[in-house]
Write a protein that binds this DNA or RNA. Structure first.
Lengths: 269, 269
DNA sequence: GACGGACTGTCGTCCAGACGACAGTCCTAG
DNA sequence: CTAGGACTGTCGTCTGGACGACAGTCCGTC
């Protein structure tokens, strides 16, 4: 838990397009329709957007960072089913029903950033009125579901090492930068692995020159190398994400845009 | 693979309500709107409704049985992320987008039954025109997502034994009967476990008097006992399903109706 | 009634990874 | 500059479960 919290600064989103890619993909008309209802709010590491059983009040279009969609077991352990970044939004349940009671717990995993917040009420109204928004978010939801399913299979069949690499690659995609904060303990929890195992794996990856790790900070050194040692699950999930942007995607510098969308085939050539 | 296949008998659904519970929950007006487009088709064990990457042609409202929503790994193994029964429909992707390309593989797991088939086109049109249908299926989708998330966590943290029990209980709920066909090998694959392990577990459960197993046929003998040895994941998933029926649910004899819906709290008292 | 196929029980062997423990290292607040 | 807290490296020990193999059992078909 952070010791000193910056004062919560909420501001109306009035300037140009936010960083969030879903919002960026909206046609002007639809975005302008939404804009009066958006508020830019700061988001902190370890922030919990919603817990299981809570009624959702807002959805959040992230402008950066990585958020984990998790399940909490009665035991207390939490396990990640999907990650949400600046190409998505938190509060998918609100897409599905009006009285959106969440079944999952959404925890901000990586760093401080901000998000465009929208009340569930305004969100639902916009969904009803704007078919383009509905279509776009429906596609995103499918991506999330795809990720969940892949994660389920990956968690069962692949080693902690492979799962670590998957997580790092996906986080890297979301972050659009080489290094970000992430402790072994956090990663272990998300993967349902033990901390010592993750530490050992991280050590190996570092020794192999693929990443650098130092006290809560990872640096992706050799992305291609990481991809080479990852299981196919990363490629599959990535392919889903690539399908979000029809044709060319927004003009961005990240590795996210390295390849053409390929929805039919999960494994890249 | 079955040796002798009955001829495919498609018939228009014109009589009363089908067994499928989602359809049963629709108000008359909405159901009548849908009815001309429904066809009752037979469904066989091991039937594959759709594979990953395929464009969906139809959605299927099952009238019985258990269908597994699975992910196929490049390795060839398949792992289940969620089960669909007569309280759901196959083809959830079609809820999310028009050009519904599936990301998952849906395989009929338990027995021969039939289903109400609806073309994706008619389905999408109905969704657009009938808000009640949209609401109902949106809720169902949330249930499926909840099940996926719980399964992800369960697969990581719980023993093969607990997962077996979870599967059997959910299948029992879907089947509304004590016994049904299911081989150890199938169950093992769904759980991502090895066949010998599942056999061993099944042996234990049988020795404990909870189930009877004989050559591809399980009988649930002591349901309460099974619930007692299950992990909380079953209860959590079950609670999601119970939320589908607002207030009282359809008049059925299954154990499905044993308890009042309780959405807020995953664990039953 | 015999045969082949499908399903189940069981037995070694082997290993990934859990779990607990503890020491070392870095970072930051005071 | 220092102390405390957070993070990481590593080491035993122990076990669930994978994997391969093979024999036994039931069932439907010829």
């Amino acid at each position: 838990m952070p010791k000193k919290r910056r004062p919560l600064s909420v501001r109306q989103s009035t300037e140009g397009r936010p960083q969030n890619r879903l919002l960026a993909l909206l046609p002007d008309e639809d975005f302008h329709h939404l804009r009066p209802h958006l508020q830019t709010v700061p988001v902190r590491r370890t922030q919990v957007f919603h817990k299981a059983g809570e009624r959702l009040r807002h959805v959040y279009f992230l402008n950066g960072g990585v958020c984990s969609l998790t399940t909490r077991l009665s035991h207390g352990a939490i396990v990640e089913a999907a990650t949400i970044g600046d190409s998505g939004f938190v509060g998918i349940e609100a897409f599905l029903r009006d009285d959106a009671v969440s079944l999952s717990e959404a925890i901000m995993q990586v760093p401080d950033t901000d998000a465009e917040r929208l009340s569930v009420k305004a969100f639902r109204r916009a969904l009803a009125e704007r078919p383009v928004l509905r279509t776009l978010l429906g596609r995103y939801l499918q991506v999330v579901i795809g990720q969940m399913m892949q994660t389920t299979a990956c968690n069962v069949h692949h080693s902690v090492r492979e799962r670590c690499v998957r997580w790092l690659l996906i986080a890297h995609d979301h972050m659009h930068r080489q290094n970000f904060t992430l402790s072994h303990a956090f990663l272990a929890e998300m993967l349902g692995a033990s901390r010592p195992t993750v530490s050992a794996v991280a050590g190996q990856l570092q020794a192999a020159g693929l990443i650098r790790y130092s006290h809560g900070r990872v640096t992706v050194v050799d992305r291609t190398g990481l991809e080479a040692v990852s299981c196919d699950c990363y490629a599959a999930i990535r392919a889903h994400f690539d399908c979000l942007q029809p044709g060319r995607q927004a003009n961005r510098t990240s590795s996210y845009a390295q390849e053409p969308p390929n929805c039919r085939q999960a494994h890249r050539p």
